[in-house]
Design a protein around this nucleic acid. Sequence first.
DNA 1: ACCTGAACACCGTTCAAGT
DNA 2: ACCTGAACACCGTTCAAGT
Lengths: 229, 229
Amino acid sequence: MANRTGQGPARAPRRADGLSRELIIRTAIDMLDSGGEKALTLRALTVRLRTGYGAIYHHVADKDDLLAAAADQVITGVTASTADGSSDPRTALRALALSLFDAIDAHPWVGADFSRQPWRPALLDFYESVGRLVGDLGVQHEARFDAAGALVNYVLGVAAQNAANARLLAGGAADRETFLENAAQQWAQIDPGRYPFVHAAATHLSEHDDREQFLVGVDIFLAGVATLR
Amino acid sequence: MANRTGQGPARAPRRADGLSRELIIRTAIDMLDSGGEKALTLRALTVRLRTGYGAIYHHVADKDDLLAAAADQVITGVTASTADGSSDPRTALRALALSLFDAIDAHPWVGADFSRQPWRPALLDFYESVGRLVGDLGVQHEARFDAAGALVNYVLGVAAQNAANARLLAGGAADRETFLENAAQQWAQIDPGRYPFVHAAATHLSEHDDREQFLVGVDIFLAGVATLR
DNA sequence: ACCTGAACACCGTTCAAGT
DNA sequence: ACCTGAACACCGTTCAAGT
């Protein structure tokens, strides 16, 4: 009935270069880094890649698959690069934990994804390294599984925290400085009579370094592991 | 134009008893417990409460508010009940951590919510108790903030893990036994040459108790804290 | 004040149809 | 094989209208 000839429904021109799973994942990482978890929508992805939904679903199973693949991509190699075996186990464990912390600090959405799916293959190398190094510390048998498991839980716990903080920062708040000040002020208003510790912690918050505190936690942990030997 | 008289659009009868924020939250908890996080939709809530969207939005700000209120409700009182001060700090810390573990184990969606929003007021009592008890252990000044913070991160990390496991269990898998067996079998197929530790851990998985391992982690932690004194 | 429910602005996902 | 994009089945949320 309508005009078959003349200007049609104005289809967008087909991509000249081919689409690939790798390009999709790379683009997704970029969108997640700059806009957070909520910025990655299939619609936005089709716009960025100048393509259609079907093209994307031809290369990835679904959105979860894409998110997991993006997280894997970011983490792969991070752990392997620090395990050069030249240092003592304690130093190596600190470096290993710190490398994962830094990677998740740079890409907070990865922390959220791993706390949802902690059994991703990309974490295998991390688990393996932690387990071996804990063994090198002299911890054997069941205690080794317990110690390695607890350390991994601690690291993933901090990762989830980081992701939560990043979510807060992404929403409106200008920069990290003012956000922390606001948070500290809110905490400072907590009744010092009823919550003396939290109140004191809030006062302490402005001069506190997440990375530093993470390392202190690892050290506390390693000191505890040493008593298992 | 259409029939104003006769049977109208068949409106559902108005609720006899009044709706309340408390009833909405209680119903939400029930739905979350029985169906997991994805079972709580506004649509399902209107059906369960035989009401409309506006009625619910009159009592809660939005879905996040509802979810947070539900998590608060579950956790409130849990930590306070264990702090009777009659036991030594170490025993009290174990009991405190365990009470939070058990609460989140019974309501895994709470763990997911707290790892997203760790600064909920309901956790204030938990932070406060942990901080005071760590102080009672003889840890003072900055070390006290570091130790308490790390312990809280560990507990929330385990909580997130629990939530992730519950999500897996909720999806199709029959019961916990067969799920763990399947998981163990998958892990057992991991190349023992490349991943000897993970392979050994998988073998160990069937005879492992989450609650027990959580407590071992707390103990490792407390042993490490003792070295700070 | 409290409630109703059609309507709106989004999601992720599918699939017949094109090249 | 690879891609297009209208259509579908959902979401959370709003709001004019009712009592």
